[in-house]
Write a protein that binds this DNA or RNA. Sequence first.
DNA 1: CAGTATCCTTGCTGATACTG
DNA 2: CAGTATCAGCAAGGATACTG
Lengths: 145, 145
Amino acid sequence: MAEEGTLESPGSSRVTDDACRDDRDPFQWDSREDCDVRQILDRIADKWSLLVISLLEERTMRFNELRREIDGISQRMLSVTLRHLERDGLVQRTIYPEVPPRVEYRLTPLACTLLGTIQSLVHWTEEHQEEIARARAEFDRSAGA
Amino acid sequence: MAEEGTLESPGSSRVTDDACRDDRDPFQWDSREDCDVRQILDRIADKWSLLVISLLEERTMRFNELRREIDGISQRMLSVTLRHLERDGLVQRTIYPEVPPRVEYRLTPLACTLLGTIQSLVHWTEEHQEEIARARAEFDRSAGA
DNA sequence: CAGTATCCTTGCTGATACTG
DNA sequence: CAGTATCAGCAAGGATACTG
């Protein structure tokens, strides 16, 4: 059984409710667990989603193609991740009725609006990895000594 | 695409460690599991880190202050998350030798260079949450029916 | 207040086997 | 090729109790 489960109904939590903006500062985003923002953020920032989106940015890809490109991902997790992204409207799945079967994945326009941000994130990481490595070494030396 | 928080990269090609990039396409980031980029990305994009960084963006905060603001976080996970962020050089921990003890957390300059990107991410999520909710409803109706 | 230590449950994850 | 189904292992996460 897929651990998909049925999430709550679409209209269950809308930020526009006054109940959602009671004790929060206006400049701060709603951080409650049941809020949409948290759920979506957890989804796109999970272990594999960023990787998949980054790869699909460049071109349409097939299942095993993605599998080969993403080091360490299992068949199951790629399947689950793609399904999640498809459900969120970020990835479009196209089945070509051929033999052998061919399925291609591509980013939706919605996902394309997210690409810039993801690039920034990856870019930041690449640029500061040494700085972070140094901070870690420093921390470990101070605390672990 | 409206690129709001585009912190454009100063000196993008200056990833001095070339050992990490050998057989990948130049436009694609290294996706191997043992690569720093993957590890750091997993760290800053985890369940709680984004939340903590967002809250600290605004001001210095104390432990229980953060705990109160972040709905659903346990004392343990806040402690672990803060420790991770501190180790990565993103959060600075300051102890004031008072009674009762006071400890304050603030973002480091390194973390501040990441704020734009995080804001973009949160902003994107806020702006597209309804669209995603609709996509989910559509998906569930088609598949789950 | 600001944590750490411990235990225990959840659910993520990967390996394997099987279907269309 | 493109997956789903099932199961087992392990680590993340939460609850509780305790320390400085």
